[in-house]
Design a protein around this nucleic acid. Structure first.
Lengths: 388, 388
DNA sequence: CAAAGCAAATGAAACGTTTCAACGAGTGAG
DNA sequence: CTCACTCGTTGAAACGTTTCATTTGCTTTG
């Protein structure tokens, strides 16, 4: 491919004129415009301003242009000025791909999407993706998203690394002993997880402090006078699930309440399963029946509220209910749901900050970060009644 | 940077042995391993298999390797076999960045995130992002996501194009006269919109057929015996909003029902605004009061249902309610909500198929596609009562 | 038997950048 | 006046591919 300079030479016009003729950025006499067009045609040139063109216009070497634009070597004020003028006149923008090849850094961060089943979708993650993109851009990076299957997730990660498509990864929706984390650790690929995997592996992560969150809401309920608190958690074994249960015990311990058998239920993360658990709780004798039900997700809390509504139990008055996540539904359900909000923007920013340190291979002093969620009090735990 | 061949020569071992020593892919006698390590160290070489290494091992030129791997020129069976063996033995994966620079094609599609206000988030878009990534990958592309501000969105698009970061774009959340579309058309950048902009511009898009959707649900209600149907739409002026209203008229016309004044309300896309509109409707005299309320979004329908519940009106029995979107909340609210589901996977696949045609610069015959949503009947329009 | 033709393989250029090593022109010290 | 330095600048190499133009070694044909 020819350069702009050659086109200009062939058309016997100044370089800048050739640029204007082809770009339309400024007016050029029709005769000249035509001859430039013809010259470009003849050379098979299509407008594409490179560092060479800037160098030609500024009458310096391309090395000098590079030094000026990256401020990576001393350049005299006069030349610097000429170069900047030329770059501006030609509206020059460096081609990132040239850079990438030379530096062997793509400035791209991989982020994999799962295929969430209907109803299990997390609106939360869409916002996370936004804030992540935003945070990453402030460091001059971009996010490359890809889809991966649930059964062999590592394949997609391996492929992206081996073909040099990305510099690192951000993982979300981590599982216990997540195979992706195992692979990335072994392959020594920079990454940060949004979520934990197990206690043995040492890797950088940011997670919501579910334990502290549930403790907060339990404390809030105890403060309202509740003394019989039930908890509907996930089946034992999930990292974040067990942490949340722990927060419940923390609060009860602190208030010197001893948890009764039957107050703790386990259910899958669905409205229906939680409703069934709530039904069990309702069957307890009124005198010992819990007056508050803590749920480890908003989805479950919604199931509980719907069930209580159907049974004629007044939620927020007869029985308080709380959730976790601050899903949009929390504001929309009747009564509106007390819950814990995860500070998405903050989480994303911290994940990205950690990742940048990993990419520089200078690990941050604190590579494991827990962020406390914020208690959002709504009608489902309104202090409307004195509990016996 | 040195090549694997040079390292092997310096360590006086075969190329493949050098590879094994450095990669650990196969066992190598400790003595040899050490001398290879030392040689690599001395040359400042870190393991990175390129086409040159494959060529060296197969004892052919790099051109031949390229031809074999891309099947882009005739190669004798014997050499082809040698090359494939060598590539496999070295676990060679082409570096995409070399390709990108040479072809000036990044095989990256840009997709911009908006910052949606809390409560206005669309869980739908998260799933769209997943299916889009999936579809794009089946063509060997990836999605580059970026965040852009609401006030000057085109800047981000321009930057990505001018620096050659992406080959094209997918837009979602399009507005009437969307400035992004105006820019991309003018800059002649390949893109496809998920949503329309206005009737004047000719560009490829895929959109949900809101008109047909609302017609479907109205038809369904009329089939149940309803004759007085109200509609709560968005303020006039939005493209998709107006289309949905049109579907309502279509169905009423077909059933020879003439819409009464007062049946049509306009409200912002929020639960509260829709509830207020529903309150107005409730004040109409019982004899002429609508028996069904169609809403142009699930969010609005939820506001309406909550309001009716509060007023003691039995939704699905006294008054039917419908929404649009099939948000997860539709299944969770009481009663569950009849609505229109957008076939996300299908929409994403069609958007991507269109984009691929645009990228090849051979525009598809049909560049504007409307996809009909699917009617999902739930309890909020149950046929429980004979309407007068 | 020479010329022509063909298939297979190769050397080298190109894509756009950064950066190393080298160079020339001043400047200050001896 | 010369030598050694510094500062500013430059040519060229390198990153990993693809692909053009050419060469090599055969086979066929007149």
């Amino acid at each position: 491919m020819a350069t702009l300079k050659q086109v200009a030479a062939l058309a016997k016009v100044p370089l800048l004129t050739a640029y204007h003729a082809l770009s339309g950025a400024a007016d050029v006499p029709p005769a000249q415009r035509e001859s430039v067009r013809a010259a470009a045609e003849q050379l098979g040139y299509s407008l594409n301003v490179t560092i060479k063109d800037v160098a030609a216009l500024a009458e310096v070497s391309i090395a000098t242009v590079s030094y000026v634009l990256n401020d990576s070597a001393p350049v005299s004020a006069a030349t610097r000025h000429r170069v900047l003028e030329a770059a501006a006149a030609l509206n020059y923008r460096p081609n990132v791909n040239g850079r990438i090849l030379q530096a062997n850094k793509t400035r791209l961060i991989g982020y994999g999407w799962h295929n969430l089943k209907r109803g299990h979708s997390a609106p939360f993650l869409e916002r996370f993706a936004y804030w992540m993109a935003q945070a990453v851009e402030s460091y001059g990076y971009h996010v490359l998203t890809f889809a991966h299957s649930a059964d062999s997730p590592t394949d997609a990660y391996r492929e992206l690394i081996q073909t040099n498509r990305v510099d690192g990864f951000i993982l979300s929706h981590t599982n216990r002993n997540d195979p992706r984390i195992r692979y990335l650790l072994e392959a020594r690929v920079p990454f940060v997880a949004f979520g934990r995997a197990n206690d043995r592996w040492d890797f950088p992560y940011v997670d919501v402090d579910g334990r502290e969150g549930v403790r907060l809401v339990a404390e809030h309920l105890i403060g309202l006078g509740h003394t019989r608190l039930a908890l509907i958690g996930w089946p034992e074994g999930s990292l974040s699930g067990d942490a949340r249960v722990q927060g419940y015990f923390d609060a009860l311990d602190a208030a010197a309440i001893s948890p009764q058998t039957g107050w703790i239920k386990r259910a899958e993360n669905s409205a229906a399963a939680a409703a069934a658990a709530a039904a069990d709780l309702l069957e307890m004798p009124l005198a010992t029946r819990p007056t508050a039900i803590l749920c480890v997700s908003d989805l479950m809390a919604v199931g509980v509220i719907n069930h209580l509504n159907r049974c004629g139990v007044q939620v927020g008055y007869d029985i308080a209910v709380s959730g976790f996540d601050d899903d949009p539904i929390a504001e929309l359900i009747q009564p509106s749901l007390t819950t814990l909000r995860q500070p998405v923007d903050d989480l994303a920013a911290q994940v990205v900050a950690l990742l940048m340190a990993e990419l520089e291979r200078i690990p941050a002093p604190q590579r494991q970060i827990l962020v406390a969620p914020q208690l959002i009090v709504r009608a489902s735990t309104a202090p409307q009644r004195q509990f016996p």
